[in-house]
Design a protein around this nucleic acid. Structure first.
Lengths: 167, 167
DNA sequence: TTGCGTGCAAAAGGTTTGCATAAAT
DNA sequence: ATTTATGCAAACCTTTTGCACGCAA
């Protein structure tokens, strides 16, 4: 009966499309075909991705729902701004991950197979806030990356190592 | 990851130059004027820096101890490899920090003034190792960046914000 | 003397931007 | 009818590389 009241606290049942449309409307921006297409593909993939991997899965130039590279960059930036995606650097590449309906988490990065393993730790959040308080710092977020070798890669079976990068 | 691990008992009194010379000799590489010049300037600065800020302080083209940009990149990579520097990404820029005789630490990053504040936490190391153990992950290192606003920037006086960047 | 290291120029890689056109409101 | 968004091409920025010469060992 009171559907409007749900707008105050965004319910978990709101889809990414709905949230993004609200974002667009609140700024007087337009809901275009391209934005919908990119959103579809991004949320079809429940994993981390970079721009090239996303483009591989999108329609190519000439095909029906083609979206150009500049527009993809512009659109991903909007998703980040809208809180749908999070963006970070990993081994010299820009990586995006879903931030929609996902709990806050951090990563273990395996240098053998370049895989990311997610973990969640309340103790880390507590520690973060404690450190921040000690410095009278107001936290807006954090990023922890633990690097090393995953269980599989420790047992000699290092699998499909992609290109080696710095840092 | 203390730099001492390479040799048996490296006294704290060993200078960066000495450590770098050992590194070079151990690989049959040469101790050139350029490498010494860059090392001098890097260790004159006890703070974080990026390549452009370093180049600003180095002799310019035509002057006595000029070092070309490619050589600076090559040399910084060697310093990282030698354990003298650590490298990471921050707001889309590559940042280096001294790793010589410094305790392992992490950072608070103020989005107001773009400053980095260092902190050290044994609890974080314990937490890191515990998380890793839970995933049977062998840790080689980690990086934690806490973002937000420092005390000064919270009190309205946001100072000299440099160029705004992504992530 | 040997061959590693350097500077130069150019390439590479990823991302952004100017602009005319297309499309959403 | 407006005005934002798109696609194209090109610019941009940072980092890397090919190569001939110079210099450390």
């Amino acid at each position: 009966m009171p559907p409007e009241s749900a707008l105050d606290h965004v319910p978990v049942s709101v889809t990414p499309h709905e949230q993004f449309e609200r974002y667009l409307r609140s700024r007087g921006r337009r809901n275009t075909v391209q934005r919908r297409v990119v959103l579809d593909y991004v949320f079809r993939e429940h994993d981390h991705f970079d721009v090239d991997r996303l483009i591989e899965k999108l329609p190519r130039r000439g095909q029906p729902k083609y979206v150009s590279r500049p527009t993809i960059y512009r659109t991903l930036a909007e998703f980040v701004d809208a809180g749908l995606l999070r963006k970070f650097e990993l081994a010299g590449r820009t990586v995006y991950e879903l931030n929609y309906g996902y709990p806050e988490h951090d990563h273990l990065y395996c240098q053998g197979c370049q895989r990311l393993i997610e973990f969640q730790s309340d103790a880390l959040l507590a520690l973060r806030d404690e450190v921040a308080a000690r410095h009278r710092f107001r936290v807006t977020g954090h990023r922890l990356m633990i690097t090393g070798l995953c269980a599989a890669c420790q047992s000699g079976s290092r699998r499909r190592p992609r290109r080696q990068q710095q840092s």
